[in-house]
Design a protein around this nucleic acid. Structure first.
Lengths: 196, 196, 196, 196
DNA sequence: GATGAATGAGTATTCATTCAT
DNA sequence: GATGAATGAATACTCATTCAT
């Protein structure tokens, strides 16, 4: 990696952190360059606009997430665990940036949305493959796989991202996940442990 | 209603329209007062801050929506139709403000989110009552009603608000709705017509 | 004149002075507001953009110049004196703002050009009327009056605005002016005194 | 011509084109180097500042124009045709850079002015020689030749550069040109064809 | 109730220039 | 000869909010 590229990645990481902490709109270019200890011009040497930087930040994140998902997919875990594992890994705020609130705070809605959409697009085919695997193994039985996967993602995001969910939410989620994929009751019960 | 109140409501309606058209952040106080034909001072006589106005705009909307939902609930429709009817009425952009895109556009994500959350809070108990009715009638069979209702709302919003959904999305949605509430297959098939 | 209007005119005058001193492009909004002792917002309360302000500055100037020209036209001076008097009054840098160089300096070329064009448009009909008067009196004899007037204006501007002209320039100018309007040699000789 | 010089001339030509297209101020160094496919540093290896480059661009142009004028002067054309020919050749936008508008556009006023001034300085002596020739041939009869030549140049520039002139402008121009040099009426009538 | 003049901190972006390699 | 990363002062413009009248 060349000098310029390293610098750029460094900037992306700083920006990512600031975006999460204060929100994209609320993070000024000034704040970013101060944090990075560079001049205004240097910033604009690497990024054409602030928005373009956001795209790159998101792109970087997506790449990392999907890579992680690919790993899970290739692991020897049982299919249901794979699926839930991948879904669980999609919450960057948990592992990477343990900043309370983070993506769910109103200032971040825009970024959150963008990330979710792209992440969903990238991860859906991976999850679909896992479901097919499950069907082949007789664990699942369903059609319209991609649509079901996407629906599960949506519910998962909305239910768990807020950080505010009850045991009953989990119970319903499990019930729904099983029924979505036509699994036997109890197949997904392990989620209960996972989430706690 | 006194003169001042009327004026205030008028302002709220103008603001609501502008917020939908251009997004909350992108709508300046200047734009609002110009549209309303009033002076800056007058605006701040009625609203402490622009954000407070947003809250009131949302409040006004919620009230209208829940009132509509209450109407549906008291109607003599079959329970499944009631439920779907209420959910369908939650999309303000369709009936109230026929502005294409509107709430789903990125500028509106913030407002969208706020509205959805509050709307969901307000409407969930109404929907829950409908589900209970359905259980009493033997059409549904499930526990954790509130959680299930909320999940359905989430999926509905995410799936249909974007305006971009396929027949397969609808099929999966129907399947899921039936299973969520423990209804017999086919109970919710009427949705297919409704949505077309 | 209301409070706001007075303020606006004051700003226009300050800006005019600064534009002449430093050139339009080189005069920042910051410089103007500092000189005027007002806040950024106040400036933009009165002017939508800096360029719009330039238009207004120019408009103000044109108005003053043409008014002066009208005065000369109504005076009891001999026609040739009227014409030359009006042309002479068109050089704002001389009487109004005795700033050396001023309009002719490269930074001001743009403004200069704009002013000259508009001034020329406004003053040409006045001068044309004077020429017609001269024709009626048998002093002049020519056709295409407007075109001749405009040509005289052009030459006058280019020759005398630079401030660097010789006696021979004056002699040629006089000769040309006489011939342009078909006057007898010597009719315009008084210019020699005027310019010195 | 050495490698370095060739490169420099190439840069000057690119810059000249860009300056005409977008104006000097509006053409950034970045734009120039991108077009030329060189690095920032290389640019500053050849030119100390952007303004100095402008001077060189203009110098290059002047040289080309005066060379053309010299050619006309040595040609066997009748004197009036020589003079008008030279004047006509001074409009670079016509022959050299067929960019509509070009020099007359407000962004270019500065460069235009600089060019005109220098061009005028360089060409005046050549034109003066032509006039002297005309006097020797008995076609012209006048004094203060240099001043008259310069005045003609000024009028020509202002009248024809804008592209917007009427037949009457041409008529007045011809009349004035003849009188300026003391030529017989009709001597310059050929201009009418030339311009059409 | 209503006005509108005034505020000023804040924003993203531009660009000629430098210099170590 | 040539590179390209780095600079930082400068710029026009926005906008929610205040307050004396």
């Amino acid at each position: 990696m060349k000098k310029g590229e390293r610098r750029k990645k460094e900037l992306l990481e700083i920006a990512y952190r600031l975006f999460l902490q204060k929100g994209y709109e609320e993070t000024s270019v000034d704040a970013i360059i101060e944090e990075a200890g560079i001049a205004k011009g240097t910033y604009y040497y690497y990024f054409e606009t602030k928005e373009q930087m956001l795209e790159e930040v998101i792109g970087m994140m997506i790449e990392a997430e999907t890579e992680a998902a690919r790993q899970v997919l290739q692991s020897p875990l049982p299919v249901p665990q794979k699926i839930i594992g991948i879904i669980a890994s999609l919450r960057p705020s948990r592992e990477e940036a343990p900043i309370e609130g983070a993506l769910m705070r109103p200032e971040n809605v825009l970024m959150h949305r963008k990330i979710l959409q792209k992440l969903s697009d990238a991860v859906t085919p991976l999850l679909a493959r896992a479901v097919e695997e499950g069907i082949a193994q007789g664990i699942f039985a369903c059609d319209n796989i991609a649509e079901r996967v996407r629906m599960l993602l949506v519910v998962s995001n909305e239910t768990f991202d807020q950080g505010r969910f009850t045991e009953r939410d989990v119970a319903v989620f499990i019930d729904m996940a099983e029924k979505l994929f036509g699994a036997k009751p109890g197949t997904m019960d392990f989620i209960r442990e996972l989430i706690r």
